[in-house]
Measured scan of single mutants.
Amino acid sequence: MTYKLILNGKTLKGETTTEAVDAATAEKIFKQYANDNGVDGEWTYDDATKTFTVTE
């Protein structure tokens, strides 16, 4: 399945997608991606749209 991440960081904003077997796997990938890019904030997930959002 395709999952989407919306980044609302102070210095980085944008979107990315990943292919993952489930939401938990996608979350791990996205949290590593956000960490690698210096984004740390409040996480939400919308199962209907398979979208994670992180807001600093």
Rank of each mutant, 00 (worst) to 15 (best):
D36F: 09
Y3K: 01
T11Q: 10
T49L: 07
G9L: 13
T11N: 12
A24I: 09
E19W: 12
G38T: 04
E27Q: 13
E42K: 10
T16H: 14
G9K: 05
F52I: 01
F52K: 00
A23I: 11
T49P: 02
A24F: 10
T49A: 06
N35G: 11
F52D: 00
L7Y: 12
G14Y: 15
E56I: 08
K4D: 03
F52S: 00
A24V: 10
D40I: 13
A24D: 10
L5Y: 02
A20F: 03
Y45K: 01
V54W: 03
E56G: 06
L5W: 03
D47A: 14
E27M: 12
Y33E: 03
V39A: 04
E42N: 11
K4E: 04
T16P: 03
E56V: 08
F52V: 01
F52T: 00
Y33V: 06
T11S: 12
T2P: 06
A26R: 00
F52N: 00
D47E: 15
A20I: 02
D22P: 01
G41Q: 02
A34K: 01
A23V: 12
Y33P: 00
F30N: 00
N37I: 15
K28E: 09
E42Y: 13
Y45L: 02
K28T: 10
V39G: 03
T53D: 02
A24R: 11
K50R: 15
T17K: 08
A20G: 05
G38W: 05
G41I: 02
V21N: 12
D36Q: 13
F52Y: 06
M1D: 15
N35A: 14
E15W: 14
I29L: 07
E15H: 11
K31L: 08
V39F: 11
K10M: 12
T55V: 08
A34Q: 02
E27N: 06
E56L: 06
D46H: 07
K13F: 10
T17P: 02
K31P: 00
T44E: 10
N37F: 14
A26N: 00
L12F: 15
A23F: 09
G9D: 04
D36K: 10
A20L: 02
I6K: 06
N37K: 15
A34Y: 03
W43E: 00
D40E: 13
D47Y: 10
A26H: 00
T2K: 12
K31M: 09
T55K: 06
K31D: 03
F30D: 00
K28M: 12
G38M: 07
A26V: 03
D22L: 04
F52H: 02
V54I: 10
D46K: 04
K31I: 08
N37P: 01
T49G: 05
K4R: 13
K13Y: 12
Y33H: 05
I29P: 01
Y3P: 01
T17S: 12
D46N: 11
F30R: 00
L7P: 01
F52W: 07
E27F: 15
W43Q: 01
Y45F: 07
E42R: 08
I29E: 06
K28N: 09
E27I: 08
K10T: 09
N37T: 08
L7R: 02
G14P: 04
Q32N: 07
E42V: 14
K31N: 05
A24H: 11
Q32R: 11
N35M: 13
G9T: 14
Q32G: 07
V39W: 14
D40M: 14
A48L: 15
T51Y: 03
V21P: 10
I29H: 09
L5F: 05
D46V: 06
T16G: 04
T17D: 05
T11L: 14
T51F: 03
D22H: 04
T53K: 06
W43N: 00
D40W: 13
E27R: 09
F30S: 00
A34L: 09
G14M: 14
K31S: 04
F52E: 00
N35V: 14
L12Q: 10
D40N: 15
F52A: 00
V54D: 01
T53N: 05
A48E: 12
V21E: 12
M1Y: 15
L5P: 00
Y45A: 01
D46L: 04
T51R: 03
K10L: 13
E56P: 05
K4V: 12
T18Y: 08
A24S: 11
V39I: 15
K13N: 09
T44S: 15
L7A: 04
T2S: 09
K10I: 12
A48H: 13
D22Q: 03
D47H: 12
D22R: 03
V54N: 02
T44F: 11
V21S: 13
Y45I: 02
G9Y: 06
G14E: 07
Q32W: 06
Q32L: 09
T55A: 06
V54E: 00
A34T: 06
K28Y: 10
V54T: 04
A26T: 01
F30P: 00
E42G: 05
L5E: 01
Y33F: 13
V54Q: 01
G9H: 06
G41D: 02
T11W: 15
D40Y: 15
D47T: 09
T44M: 12
T17H: 10
T53F: 09
K50I: 03
E56H: 07
G38I: 05
D40L: 12
W43F: 04
V21W: 11
K4W: 09
Y45R: 02
M1H: 14
Y3Q: 01
M1T: 15
G14K: 13
D22G: 04
T25K: 06
Y45S: 01
Y33M: 05
G9W: 05
T51G: 02
G14W: 15
T16V: 15
N8W: 14
W43S: 01
A20P: 01
E19K: 11
G41W: 06
K10S: 10
K13E: 07
V21L: 11
G38Y: 07
N35W: 14
K4A: 05
A24T: 09
T2Q: 11
D47N: 10
T49H: 06
L12D: 05
D46R: 04
N8K: 09
T17L: 11
E27S: 08
N8D: 09
K50Y: 11
D46E: 08
A34S: 05
A20V: 04
N37E: 08
G14D: 08
E42D: 13
V54M: 05
A48Y: 11
T25A: 14
D46Y: 05
L12V: 12
N8L: 10
V21Q: 11
L12Y: 13
F30W: 02
Y3H: 04
T18R: 05
T53W: 12
A34P: 00
T2Y: 13
Y33W: 12
T2L: 15
Q32P: 02
V21M: 12
T44H: 12
D47M: 09
T51N: 02
K13I: 11
I29Y: 10
V54P: 00
D36L: 12
T51E: 04
K28W: 09
T25E: 15
M1I: 15
A20T: 05
Y3T: 01
A20N: 04
Y45H: 02
K31Y: 06
E42T: 14
T49Y: 05
G38V: 04
T17E: 13
D36Y: 09
T18P: 01
Y3L: 01
Y3F: 15
Y33G: 01
A48K: 14
M1W: 13
D40K: 11
D40G: 09
M1L: 15
T44P: 00
A34V: 09
T2M: 11
Q32F: 05
D46T: 05
E15I: 13
K50P: 00
D36A: 13
G9Q: 04
Y45N: 00
M1F: 14
T16F: 15
